[in-house]
Computed example of a mutant assay.
Amino acid sequence: MSTAGLAVTLFAIAANGFSGIAALLHFRPILAGMAKADVPESWLTFPIGTLKTAGALGLAAGLAFPPIGISAAIGLVLFFVCAVYTHIRASDYSAQFMLAIGFLGLNVATLVVTLPT
């Protein structure tokens, strides 16, 4: 993996890890955005926080065993496609929606750099 690829992957690990832990801890600043998207607060622990945190751990494991990282990146891309769809369905185009798009782009970039050339 190139230096740029490693940097993108490390940033994705940190961002998804922080986001997952924030969801697991029901971090107050994210609650309003979840409510706007009609996401029940009970979903923050499972599936949202659990899947984001597992994805970050999978990306980290992928640094040693690339197939795990590729699988984690695919899972995170699918997760954030669903997150963007959820915001669109709820007509919520707030900052949370923009963050979901940013995370989707970050995870697509991570998938691209982790694929073998």
Rank of each mutant, 00 (worst) to 15 (best):
T110M: 00
F18I: 14
A109R: 01
T86V: 11
H26L: 04
F80M: 11
G33E: 01
A35K: 02
L31D: 01
A61W: 11
I68Q: 05
L76I: 06
L106H: 05
G55D: 10
M1G: 15
F103Q: 10
L25Q: 08
D92A: 15
A100C: 14
P67V: 04
T110C: 13
S71K: 00
F11H: 01
F27N: 05
A60W: 08
A83P: 12
F18W: 12
F97Y: 15
G33R: 04
A32E: 14
A14Y: 07
L78C: 13
F18K: 02
L59A: 06
S71Y: 08
I21P: 09
D38Q: 15
G102F: 08
L111E: 08
L10V: 13
T3S: 15
C82I: 11
G105A: 12
K36L: 12
S94I: 00
P116W: 01
Y93R: 03
T110L: 00
A32I: 02
L6G: 11
L63A: 05
F103E: 08
I101T: 13
G49H: 06
S42K: 12
H87Q: 00
F80H: 15
H26M: 05
R89F: 06
T86Y: 02
S19W: 10
F11A: 15
G105R: 03
R89Q: 14
F97E: 03
V77G: 09
A23F: 01
A100S: 15
A109T: 08
P116Q: 07
F80L: 00
E41G: 07
L78H: 09
A15E: 06
I101A: 13
G75N: 09
M34A: 14
F97H: 13
M98P: 09
K36F: 09
L24W: 05
L57W: 01
N16Q: 05
V39Y: 02
T114F: 01
G75Y: 08
F18S: 11
A60N: 00
M98H: 14
G102M: 04
M34C: 13
L31Q: 10
I101Q: 11
K52E: 14
L106D: 08
T3C: 01
L106Y: 06
A7F: 12
G69Y: 02
K36G: 10
V77E: 06
A109Y: 05
I30C: 02
V8C: 08
